[in-house]
Design a binder for these strands. Structure first.
Lengths: 202, 202
DNA sequence: TCATTAATCAACACGAAGTTTATTTTAGGA
DNA sequence: TCCTAAAATAAACTTCGTGTTGATTAATGA
């Protein structure tokens, strides 16, 4: 395993291995892929792979960590004031718009990883991210002593999974709406009941 | 590969292989499991495995198909009249209750397959099931010419993923509520907005 | 230009896959 | 109870991918 030098050969090699892995995951899913597959798709020697990564799991982890890092960076720009400002208006959170832009920029990765050939552990990572950076901001509104129609933790699981589903579907459909449109959908679906969202009531 | 005889030896062997696979999936996830692992956990000869299954994928597929068959059978008992009868009442659909009972009976399988060590393709299968047997029943209410706050297909993706998330969370938590409770949550969350479900409004 | 280091190439031991053949064990009817 | 068909075992075997090593070639950048 090499140090993270600025050697352009290293950068180029690692990039080609990453691209090859994503391409193969789209075709076969992670399970069936061998290191031999990856290197031959990348046009590199098999031995070269082991100069940079321990195994295919390691490679996937590094890519994943990079993407999660990007998400965390966006999350830092999140201003809780947005929640108040957009509360009752029919406008999307800028933060959510930025997230969808990021998904779009890395559509290849998210599409594969959140799709049927992907890694369910990544969905979990992604849900944890939403829990920490989106849902926990609402915790101040939650008082356990009050009666609630649905337990708080189940409501969180419901919302997080619903939002994940929207992202997945959007990527599956080839991103047929703009990030702005998608963020607006999020706002509406949070404020309306499913029946209202469908336009069946009120 | 053998025919589906009633030979008790076959039944016993196949059952042991299935149980061993599920146990191993809980520990390691499907990816890392070898046929050797499965047979040694089952206390069987490795060659015996190949008398019944082509490979570990085949084994998993057969288990999955059996579970999906069980779901389809429950779906047949579904009476659309229930939807009308329970529309504005605070009671669960008997159909949904029955589904949660089934998940509970096969908690081992669903917990693994829908969890972080599972198979994302199974989640897709499961979503398709919900789409066909739950969501499509609402299609008659949908008129594409009307204005709707959220596109119909995105709303479906939202609801299906949300419901899947609830099932996943329930299994993760060790089924801390009864199937009846869970079905009631479904009803409430469909009729209320997330904000109302949280008890923050009205 | 030259020292450094990445990438290639070939060889290696190892382990699991999947197959085959012979042998032992088991089920269940005569 | 005995006997036969078939399932399970055991042991070999080939094939393939893994991860490592050592020698060689090619690219980088000071």
């Amino acid at each position: 395993m090499s140090e993270n030098a600025n050697d352009p050969r290293i950068v180029r090699t690692m990039h080609m291995l990453r691209e090859a892995l994503l391409a193969l995951m789209e075709e076969q899913g992670f399970e069936r892929i061998t290191v031999k597959d990856i290197t031959s798709k990348a046009g590199l020697n098999r031995g070269t792979f082991y100069l940079h990564y321990a195994d295919k799991f390691d490679l996937l982890e590094r890519i994943t960590e990079e993407m999660m890092q990007g998400l965390r960076q966006i999350a830092q720009t999140f201003d809780p004031l947005d929640l108040v400002m957009h509360e009752s208006r029919d406008t999307p959170f800028p933060f959510t718009v930025r997230l969808f832009e990021y998904f779009g920029e890395h559509a290849r990765f998210f599409s594969v990883m959140l799709g049927p050939k992907g890694d369910p552990a990544f969905s979990v990572k992604f849900k944890e991210f939403m829990q920490v950076h989106l849902m926990d901001k609402f915790n101040e509104f939650h008082h356990s002593e009050d009666y609630v129609p649905v337990p708080w933790d189940y409501l969180m699981a419901y919302l997080i999974s619903a939002h994940l589903g929207i992202v997945q579907y959007w990527l599956e459909q080839g991103r047929d709406y703009t990030p702005w449109d998608m963020a607006l959908m999020f706002t509406r679906m949070t404020q309306l009941s499913p029946i209202q969202s469908a336009g069946l009531k009120k």
